[in-house]
């Protein structure tokens, strides 16, 4: 009896040691990450960022309704939960916003609408930060993704960032997240577009500086 108690205590001790040094989602360790997102575009304002330790999107799959609301209207409230945190302001080009996230999972995802698009967003999908020690930092580039929920008509009535409609539950036929193919704009021959060359972008559209603070 005594021996088995000692044995189980030893076993328990070794489990705690192992879980403390690796990427173990079942442990009680809480990590804190400071995430600074800098807008790298010329003329695309970004909606308040959503930083989450859950997966937010996957290329080839249909967007969640929460992501659709973010990508079409800049509203991240439906994605906000215990695993995520929102920025407090829209980020204009050259500006940045910083948030802090407490998480037991060493994976980070980020999403923010590129507001002068139909359903484009700056995104980072399940970026592994398990190698970061306390005070260690790393950077990750955000690409422009297309939520695939609304046609890229670029018109004044459909682009939220120029006064057009935000979220609309209707979906475009393909209904699939992909890397965004870019803004065309009226300056490049799309006569029905309300956008100009200033709203065009290339990847990357933003950079995230991620620091583990705890």
């Amino acid at each position: 009896m005594k021996i088995s108690n000692i044995l189980s205590a030893l076993l328990l001790g070794s489990i705690v040691v192992f879980s403390g040094c690796g990427n173990n989602d079942n442990s009680d360790t809480v990590y804190t990450y400071s995430v600074k997102v800098i807008n790298l575009t010329a003329g695309q304002k970004m909606s308040p960022i959503l930083v989450s330790s859950s997966s937010l999107f996957s290329v080839g799959e249909s967007a969640s309704v929460g992501l659709e609301k973010l990508a079409e209207g800049g509203d991240n409230s439906a994605l906000l939960d215990a695993n995520s945190v929102s920025g407090t302001k829209a980020i204009i080009p050259s500006d940045s916003d910083t948030v802090s996230l407490n998480t037991k999972t060493q994976m980070l995802s980020i999403a923010s609408m590129l507001v002068k698009t139909n359903d484009g967003f700056a995104g980072l999908s399940s970026f592994n930060v398990s190698s970061l020690a306390v005070n260690g930092n790393t950077t990750a580039y955000l690409h422009a993704y297309d939520a695939g929920t609304e046609a890229n008509s670029e018109t004044s009535t459909t682009v939220a960032g120029i006064g057009g409609e935000g979220y609309n539950p209707a979906r475009e036929t393909l209904n699939m997240v992909s890397v965004h193919s870019g803004i065309i704009s009226k300056d490049d021959g799309l006569v029905s577009s309300a956008l100009t060359s200033m709203e065009r972008f290339d990847n990357p559209v933003a950079i995230a500086v991620i620091t583990r603070t705890k």
């Binding site: 890397v179 965004h180 193919s181 870019g182 065309i184 021959g189 799309l190």
Partner: peptide
């Protein structure tokens, strides 16, 4: 944007791409 002429047969709205 010309389905039957123009300089390119590629559809500028659906067949462009960005990296990656």
């Amino acid at each position: 944007f010309n389905a039957t002429g123009g300089k390119s047969d590629i559809n500028a709205q659906t067949e462009r791409f960005l990296n990656p």
